[in-house]
Nucleic acid binder design. Sequence first.
RNA 1: GCUCCGGUGGCGGAAUUGGCAGACGCAUGGGACUUAAAAUCCCACGGUGGCGACACCGUACCGGUUCAAGUCCGGUCCGGAGCACCA
Length: 806
Amino acid sequence: MAQLYNHHEVEPKWQKIWEDEKAYKTDNDYSKPKYYALVEFPYPSGQGLHVGHPRPYTALDIVARKRRMQGYNVLYPMGWDAFGLPTENYAIANHIHPKTVTENNVARFKAQLQSLGYSFDWDREVNTTDPNYYHWTQWIFLKLFNAGLAYKTNMPINFCTSCKVGLANEEVVNGKCERCGSEVIRKQQSQWMLKITEYADKLIEGLDSVDYIERVKTQQRNWIGRSTGAEVDFALTGKDDKLTVYTTRPDTLFGATYMVMSPEHPYIEKYKDEISNYDELIAYREQAAKKSDFERTELAKDKTGVEIKGLTATNPVNGKQIPIWISDYVLMSYGTGAIMAVPAHDERDWDFAKKFNLPIIEVVAGSSVPVTEQVYTDVAEGKLVNSEFLNGLSVADAKVKITEFLTEKGIGHAKTNYKLRDWVFSRQRYWGEPIPIIHCDKCGYVPLKEEELPLMLPEVDSYMPTDTGESPLAAMTDWVNVKCPKCGGPAKRETDTMPQWAGSSWYFLRYTDPTNDKELASKEALKYWLPVDWYNGGMEHTTLHLLYSRFWHRFLYDEGVVPCPEPYQKRTSHGMILGSNGEKMSKSRGNVVNPDDIVREYGADTLRTYEMFIGAFDLAASWSDEGVRGCRRFLERVWKLQDITVDGDTYSSDLETNMHKTIKKVSLDFESLKYNTAIAALMTLINDFYKKGSVTKAELKTFLTLLNPVAPHITEEIWSLEGFDGRIYNTAWPEYDEAKTVENEIEIAVQISGKVRGKIMIAVDEDKDSVITKAKENEAIAPLLEGKTIVKEIYVPGKIVNIVVK
RNA sequence: GCUCCGGUGGCGGAAUUGGCAGACGCAUGGGACUUAAAAUCCCACGGUGGCGACACCGUACCGGUUCAAGUCCGGUCCGGAGCACCA
């Protein structure tokens, strides 16, 4: 009898051996085929590792381990995305340097990850807060700046009137400051921006060449939001000026019955003197300023707005004079900050027109309900009406014709627009990468020289932003006041820091050559390792992080720094792990599970197995303590296979098909995010071993090898106790014979008119006539066919027989 | 609100291109072992009716396509993720 399975001994023992043997150290042998598996590096929060972290890490650990067994040179690295707001806030509250906070958190995270037995190459660990790392983050920023892709502009930020601090959106709760409850306003602040919009088309087109799960591609495309339409000029009545609008429906131009400008539109100031209700407009603008864009565009039911008295516009195609309104659902940041409203054929315009009693004119016919009662937005069926030379055309044809007309007359032109906005790149915070720019009154923004990098984050007395909302670095006058590198005159350093997204936009490059102090990584290393073969991360990073890092990568490709245009060949996403009550885990809900407790009580292998078995990898799953115990029970059954192991270097004949089938299923499932069914197949196989009462050494070897990527410690221990050669971690992945994965004889169902009425045994390759005859002769079927007329006989090979009767 | 995703037993979930709904695990009930319990092993386990072979119903809801629908199409309801300064 084997001893009891004791994970307290087995797991630390093998973790030590793997470390001593450098089992997972990535080879620098560039002649071998490579495989780069990547998981999103964590933010080392003060709470320690969450049970959500091991889900993706285990999944790609499985892939990495399997690839090593298949002979690949595997890069599976880990690091820390350590700049960020929570650390800074903790530092402020507890008067500890954020660097110290980070060090402590990283140490804890690392110990926790190591206790889970991941095959990370810890020699390649990176940390975004390490000056040797952010040296290159700053270097990339300088490249962007020199390429004209970084610029400064005024952007609104959330500002707490009481704390005098710029706030992250997350710190604004119902329009109030999360810390003090005071009112939050939108304050204009000069900000560094990155021109990601210049890369919009490249970022859309790049998606065609990569293998991302479809919904990630869809989300990226929709986020970029490319739309084609037209810009149209409306003359301001009696003025020399024009109001330009962007519309995706130029075909409906004859139906424009009013216009709406964003409350921030510059014309309000420009024509201040002619607007009789200026004060009212300003009051409305102040109200709107309190809302985020998100709040402004939500709640379609509750439209607000004010008519501008004293200013009207002229519709360029029919000369009609129409009123101009302001409303917060029109954003200055999208299009031209003004729209033409066609209430008959646009939902928001319709709601607005109904509320303020504005005319609704039908220009696309096809609705069964009058447009005064229901908006009609169909573009496939409708035909143009009330539109002079457009009448009778389809929407698509009308779009082309009106755009030509506008272009000819010089009052408009085709225009592509994007929902994507430029990336706000400054933070008025301490704990981030300093922006390597100097402001000189004479020379403007002057970049630091490359040799001066890294620009170190200086020590400060307080991490609090200043009263004016500037970064705490602004108070460091010694650091701030410098000589202009160009003219030698007095100048000031930029005191804003970069957002956390900066460091995480290129970390996967650094892993290929993490200690290089001459370049962000050597050309050879990048050429060999890139692109990342498989990148897994949370669905919550699908739009921002993924898009930002693709943008930087594409830029670096254009600059000749990296060898390929797209950074990630394959992208998958995992679902969240929820508490046992199906809600998000949080302290306040009291449903938090600490992975340390699970490792202590059941072992790392149990935790790994459970998290892979918990459900469909891409969907959210609820934690279950009973489920964990079930997985522990499975591993104990694996352990006890030692008691029924018999000699034999081949698969026994009655299990042969089963073995080949399972190798195939597990091999394929590990590649396609179906870890739960792979484990289910292994459970089924072990049940067969026990049913039979014995397992040959050959069968055991295969079984252990298939399970090893999921549960590396216990399989390594049994491997060694059974005296098998070498280590399981560098044994070869089992092969299967396709011909041996199918039974010769199979059972199929026989239906009569679509209902299962019996089963028959057939040979896999039996022909249709023979199968149908067998079905009709079946004792359960034959009586049911008596006196009936057979209308149709269907045989789907290897699947089903259906006899349709009357 | 906008974009995307999901809804299957008591529970987590399974079901290549439409082809036997409920694999595997959990919970529960019964049995074996035990002085007893735990652990382990065996059996049952969607609902309704029937002693029973069996019959009917059943994949959120309504309708459609098909010999055949969890899967495809149209509509409705409910839940989740993201929404640009959380990471």
